[in-house]
Design a protein around this nucleic acid. Structure first.
Lengths: 100, 100
DNA sequence: AAAATAATTCGATCATTGTCGAACAAGCAA
DNA sequence: TTGCTTGTTCGACAATGATCGAATTATTTT
């Protein structure tokens, strides 16, 4: 499953909304989040789209629980396939002026 | 000059051609390369475009020497602003099946 | 059964991006 | 000066991508 290419991952992380999602997941520290737990000023449809992109890039995985879609970071796989990437995102997260 | 945002850098690195350029610069190990020293199956115009994107993202810088444009990686600045990014690209470079 | 919740799917629209050929500019070589 | 090399700039075009509202599915709650 982890034959995702670097351009795909970079592409997935080139959108501010998706970066924000990843930042939120980093802050959640392993805990899975439902889609609408991530504060974003976009419609449901667009939100769903962004999560799909992240899923296809192997950055997150999603487990359906009832009516919710619990999403978390694929930390282990990412660290193996792209070592340093999560740390890079975490550093950026600390600088993110929109975080609470 | 280094107030480049992460999405910009990610966007710049989301194209296979541009990844190839960076790989070539990594292989050059600090030595600056002219645009057409990087083997790519694209036109001059497109090539020029890709170098511009990399420049605007703060990933490379270019020094005009005669008729040539010598380009090299902004190693120091990148390591400071996005630590781990170059290593990530270097790891990917080793896996690149198109490298000689 | 009916309503509310959570998310996906479907078209549609509009902006961005990668690509090219042709024209142009600037330096170097004959 | 005349050309050659190296890049950039300029439309143009096709493909991709972000966005939305509305309709749909599936699950839980009332």
């Amino acid at each position: 499953m982890e034959e995702v290419e670097l351009p795909t991952v970079m592409q997935a992380l080139s959108d501010p909304c998706r970066i924000a999602i990843v930042h939120e997941l980093l802050r959640a520290d392993g805990r899975a989040l439902a889609c609408n737990e991530v504060p974003l000023d976009i419609s449901k449809a667009t939100r769903s789209h962004h999560f799909e992109i992240l899923r296809e890039a192997g950055i997150v995985f999603t487990k359906v629980e009832g009516t919710k879609c619990m999403t978390s970071l694929r930390t282990v796989e990412l660290n193996k396939r792209f070592p340093g990437l999560l740390r890079l995102l975490a550093i950026d997260s600390e600088k993110d002026p929109s975080r609470k």
